[in-house]
């Protein structure tokens, strides 16, 4: 998206809705929270677009997303938590899948569990880099930290993941 155009709200929803959902899902491991976050972020984007001045759109969008996410986490802390689903997600049982499919599912569940075990700052940096696909510069803008901090968090986050998944 060129930096001199202001996208419409519908563009943001269409182009970034799924990414925002995946960001929240990977940070929480919870579809319910991811669902609420997407709606909250899009509401804030809709309000915020009026005041948006062309610049780094990604940095702007992900700063809003991150703040909405942290607010949502704080709000939910006052409510009973939903345990992270383990194995069979819908609880209805499933037909056996080929070995390699099962192995891939197990790995992705292990990776998700390992992500959740990281301290928040590291998890966020890794998810923004490797799930959302932001540049270090945009991550720095979103998280409001120097780029050296982003580099360090991503590196240490990956190192921790490697150790957790060994």
């Amino acid at each position: 998206m060129p930096d001199d155009t202001i996208p419409s709200w519908e563009d943001v929803a269409r182009l970034h809705g799924r990414t925002i959902y995946n960001f929240a899902y990977r940070l929480t491991g919870n579809a319910d929270e991811a669902h609420d976050l997407v709606q909250e972020v899009l509401l804030r984007v809709r309000k915020g677009l009026q005041a948006y001045t062309p610049g780094s759109f990604e940095g702007w969008l992900w700063r809003i997303t991150r703040n909405a996410f942290l607010d949502e986490v704080r709000r939910r802390k006052r409510r009973p938590t939903v345990p992270l689903p383990d194995g069979d997600h819908d609880g209805t049982g499933s037909t056996p899948a080929p070995e390699e499919v099962l192995a891939a599912v197990r790995l992705s569940e292990d990776v998700q569990a390992a992500l959740l075990a990281l301290p928040y700052e590291f998890r966020e940096a890794v998810v923004l880099c490797d799930v959302v696909g932001l540049s270090y510069e945009d991550i720095a803008a979103a998280a409001d930290v120097p780029i050296g901090t982003v580099r360090s968090r991503i590196h240490r986050g990956r190192r921790m993941l490697k150790e957790l998944l060994e």
């Binding site: 929803a13 269409r14 809705g17 799924r18 959902y21 995946n22 899902y25 990977r26 579809a31 991811a34 669902h35 997407v38 709606q39 899009l42 509401l43 809709r46 790995l107 992705s108 990776v111 998700q112 992500l115 890794v126 998810v127 490797d130 799930v131 590196h155 990956r158 190192r159 993941l161 490697k162 998944l165």
Partner: peptide, 29 residues
Amino acid sequence: DISWARSVVRDLPIIELPPGIVPGVFASR
């Protein structure tokens, strides 16, 4: 090591947006 960790996160499946999630945001809950 970090290249491996980077690739397992990048290879996580992309989860599709649940249907209906976007229109619902036009109004407050």
